[in-house]
């Protein structure tokens, strides 16, 4: 009886042991999987971070390049404006002026120059015409005498 009880207990113990072992094993497996997942996630996020970082650096570099080109362009434009139109753009102000603004400035300047030139030419032309006509007016009384000779 006792033996039977002992056997039974043993069976129960074994069973319990088995159950416990199973449970432990399951928990370990779960934990391992979770760990793996977590690690994978961490790795992924790290990769992502690195990629982001990389991209940001690239964008930054591109931006820097664009800025440099733009600045060079602006400089060139400023130079050409200075050459053509004779106005001086402060190089230190360049950051404030983008090329569009510079172009507007240039256009305005050229228009103003053209206008000035037209006004000057008109004056010149009027003076030339009137001088010639005035000479002729003054010459008129002399014509008859000259022809007599």
């Amino acid at each position: 009886d006792e033996h039977r009880v002992a056997v039974a207990r043993k069976v129960v113990i074994d069973r319990r042991k088995e159950v416990v072992e199973n449970a432990v094993a399951r928990r370990e497996r779960t934990e391992a999987r979770e760990r793996a997942i977590r690690q994978q996630r961490e790795q992924e996020s790290e990769r992502q971070r690195l990629a982001d970082e990389q991209r940001r650096r690239e964008v930054d570099r591109a931006q820097r390049e664009i800025d440099a080109v733009r600045r060079a362009e602006a400089l060139k434009l400023a130079e050409s404006i200075r050459e053509k139109a004779g106005i001086v753009v402060d190089i230190n102000d360049l950051d404030m002026l983008d090329t569009d603004k510079l172009k507007v400035l240039q256009r305005e300047q050229l228009e103003k120059d053209k206008h000035d030139m037209q006004a000057r030419l008109k004056l010149l032309s009027r003076r030339a015409d009137h001088t010639e006509r005035a000479y002729r007016r003054a010459e008129q009384p002399l014509l008859a005498d000259d022809y007599e000779q």
Binding site: R126, R127, H130, T131, R133, A134, R137, A138
Partner: peptide, 13 residues
């Protein structure tokens, strides 16, 4: 002389 008095002429022209 004519050039000196151009203003008067100009007005008339």
């Amino acid at each position: 002389e004519v050039r000196k008095n151009l203003k008067d002429y100009s007005k008339e022209f």
